[in-house]
Amino acid sequence: MTRRWRDAVLPTIGLVAAAVAVSWTITFSVPVVVPTASDTADVAFGWPLPWYHQDLSRFAYADHPVEVTVVGDRTDPVPTSVDWLAFSGNVALTALVLWPIALVLIRGLARLVLRARENDAPTGET
């Protein structure tokens, strides 16, 4: 693997991994508002593109609208469908947002490291 190719691929892999983690975390931690009882039959999670759909109609919510999060019951799972194309779109959009942020942070960190090296360099005084 040439150095030039490696210098492009490794940061891209890191960026995609971070985007997957952020998209996954948003989907499983941000609640969704369900306005009516009939809407519980297909609750869509994921932002900005809904990609994780669950049928939560078996739960009798007393009041609507209601905030719900992803149900992860392993003993009695709810019907779930996943739209991997929409998830890929979320990952791409998240990566587009993370890329300039990571670039600014990396450049700032590089400047701090260079300044620290310059301050630690011997001045030639005896």
Rank of each mutant, 00 (worst) to 15 (best):
V104T: 05
D39H: 11
L49N: 05
S57V: 03
R117H: 13
G124N: 02
V113G: 06
L114T: 13
D120A: 15
R3C: 12
P35C: 09
L10N: 12
L10H: 12
F45L: 07
D73A: 05
D73C: 02
L10V: 15
W51Q: 05
E118G: 14
R58V: 09
S29N: 13
E125S: 14
L114Y: 13
E125D: 15
D120W: 08
W5S: 12
I101F: 07
A110K: 10
T12W: 03
V68F: 02
S23R: 04
A37M: 08
G89L: 06
D83K: 11
A41N: 06
R58N: 09
S81Q: 08
T36C: 06
P11V: 00
V32R: 01
L103P: 10
G108K: 05
D63E: 13
A21M: 01
L96Q: 06
V70P: 01
E118Y: 14
H53I: 04
L103Q: 15
F87G: 10
D55G: 00
L103A: 15
H53R: 07
L109P: 09
W99R: 03
L49F: 08
L56Q: 09
S57Y: 04
A92I: 08
V78I: 02
R4Y: 15
P65T: 00
A37N: 09
V70Y: 02
P50D: 03
P65I: 00
P100V: 03
V32A: 04
P100I: 02
D120S: 13
